[in-house]
Simulated assay, not measured.
Amino acid sequence: MSIVDVRTERPYRVRIEHGALAHLPSLVPDAARVGLVHSEQLADAAEKMANHMPGRIIPVPVPDGEAAKNPQVLASCWSRLADAGLTRCDVVIGLGGGATTDLAGFVAASWLRGVGCILLPTTVLAMVDATVGGKTGINLPQGKNLVGAFHEPLGVLADLDFLATLSQRDISSGLAETIKAGFIRDRRILESIQEDPADACDAASDRLAELITRGVVFKAEVVGEDLREATSVEADIGRELLNYGHTLGHAIEIHEHFRLRHGEAVSIGMVFAALLSHRLIGLPEEAVETHISCLRMLGLPVSYADAQWEDLRELMAHDKKSRGTTLRFVGLRELGVPEMITSPDEQVLAECYAQLGRI
């Protein structure tokens, strides 16, 4: 069992253990009504929760995955809460993967100008990334997470029992956000994966539990220093650090209509960021190879050539990480030494993308 304290302006705890859901009643002692936003595939789990909290749970089923993160689904959640009479003293719970918890957090942030929120992540990705840091939001056709709010949860319960139902693809994809922390700061993550990649992807292994915890600790440290993502300059990087691999990764997600998992797109994006870092700020070639080898150990993609560069470049221009017309990337001068890359040469960008397709 691990408990990670997220020390922001509204501190909360992330509890990581098998059976963590048993602690849910202690987080909602005074709420008369609990709006339970859950993915449709978790209807059985939602029903069990309702049985443990009779008369209090208002089920709010939403589509699975990124299909939930749109204005129409958001409005339907509002209507469900309005029909049930959810008040300022009540809470919203998000049960599911990262897309569901992103939506649930925004429902809580926007309902009555903000009510309490508790997040129950059921995937590796949601545990290490989506439910920590208070970012909530939905997508638009023009880009991912363009509409949202900062709204920190009252608490996060990462129940490792949920991982038993995940596919190997989902576990590997979720670990992309943890290995990101390994490239940026925590070398022990890379070492653990290199020691036994199969064990790292075993839903029941202590190694996976440790990797999840290390990913949460990394993100908690970063958001504790910079919750609202102040603009970074050169090596002075705050929360923007978490965007490593995401600038191209988000563009690929949108171009693929989310057929690729988030972690798969970010994996490709991290290799691109490493190639760009090698060209522009001197990341050693061995570090680029470390990216490729570690990601391949987890079965993650490291190459991409299924889109025209011009199309991806246009999508990146609309990304929420841009500042005005300036395109920004988190880069690495060496493993563990990040540095911002701002307004990179367009020809270099295109050449790195061409190289990405040849890996």
Rank of each mutant, 00 (worst) to 15 (best):
L119A: 07
R333T: 08
C352M: 14
D102M: 05
T178F: 01
V348R: 10
A203M: 06
L157T: 08
H23T: 06
R187C: 08
T247Q: 14
P11F: 10
A32G: 14
D196W: 04
R169Y: 02
N243I: 10
A75R: 14
P344N: 15
K69V: 03
R228M: 13
G299V: 05
E351M: 15
K320S: 01
R259M: 10
T165C: 11
S232R: 02
D129G: 07
A158C: 12
V60N: 10
G148Q: 03
F150Q: 05
A350F: 05
V288S: 01
R188P: 07
E346R: 15
G19T: 14
L175H: 14
S26H: 12
A354C: 09
G238T: 01
K180Y: 04
V128Y: 07
V14Y: 09
S322F: 00
K219Y: 08
R13V: 02
D196F: 06
N145M: 05
G35W: 02
G245A: 10
S173R: 01
R333M: 13
G282P: 10
S322E: 06
H291V: 01
L283W: 02
V330L: 09
A149W: 09
L120F: 13
S2I: 07
E310M: 07
A317K: 13
L140K: 03
E66M: 11
G238E: 12
G269D: 06
L298F: 07
A45T: 15
R113M: 08
R185Q: 12
A230S: 10
D129L: 00
G98M: 08
I359C: 14
V337A: 12
A109Y: 00
G238A: 04
H318F: 14
E339Q: 15
P153S: 01
G324T: 03
D159T: 08
L36M: 03
A204Q: 15
N139H: 07
E191Q: 10
A209H: 12
E195A: 15
S205Y: 09
G35E: 04
H151W: 10
R7F: 06
E234A: 14
K69E: 12
T342P: 04
E334Q: 09
K69L: 14
N51R: 15
I254P: 08
